[in-house]
């Protein structure tokens, strides 16, 4: 497999890898580094990739493991990740500022979820994976994925209703 073929192969899911990494690592830069590392690892394994039924699922599993490892080593060295990327990359129109603010609320709520639920929300609600795929990527059974997803969605709903009614979270 040459470089062009590889880039063609990863094109459909490299953004998904990045978004998943960002969901877990929060910081844009860290997510970029992680994506870079994961794709390079994938490139190193390029000759074995034919053995995988879905390279995308394999890449997502790698991303999940890589990011969880990163978080673990961070916590071990007592470094807390701070939210640095609330500002959107694109310059939004002024009238959308308020919308943006409530979107930030949603982001904050999702970021407060446990990692497992973050992963599932990211893959289901944002990337729109089927339960079967999520179960494969996370190495869980489908029922557990459903239960976790429902729990995560309900937590978000609860927090949102609170914010909506009292203006606090």
């Amino acid at each position: 497999m040459n470089q062009n073929e590889f880039i063609h192969l990863i094109a459909p899911f490299k953004d998904k890898v990045f978004r998943l990494a960002k969901r877990l690592l929060v910081s844009n830069e860290e997510a970029q580094d992680a994506t870079q590392d994961i794709l390079v690892k994938l490139w190193d394994k390029k000759n074995g990739l034919e053995n995988y039924a879905s390279v995308e699922a394999f890449a997502m599993t790698m991303t999940k493991n890589y990011c969880l490892d990163q978080l673990k080593s961070k916590r071990a060295s007592n470094l807390k990740i701070v939210h640095t990327n609330f500002a959107s990359n694109e310059t939004r129109v002024d009238q959308k500022i308020e919308d943006q603010d409530s979107l930030n609320w949603v982001e904050k709520m999702i970021n407060e979820l446990p990692e497992q639920q973050k992963l599932i929300i990211q893959m289901r609600d944002i990337e729109q994976y089927e339960f079967e795929e999520i179960a494969k990527i996370l190495d869980m059974n489908e029922t557990a994925v459903r239960v976790n997803l429902s729990r995560a969605r309900k937590t978000i709903r609860e927090k949102m209703t609170k914010t909506h009614h009292y203006g606090i979270s």
Partner: peptide, 9 residues
């Protein structure tokens, strides 16, 4: 109030 949620996704 669910609007931002789906908008965010």
């Amino acid at each position: 109030h669910y609007k931002p949620l789906f908008g965010y996704f």
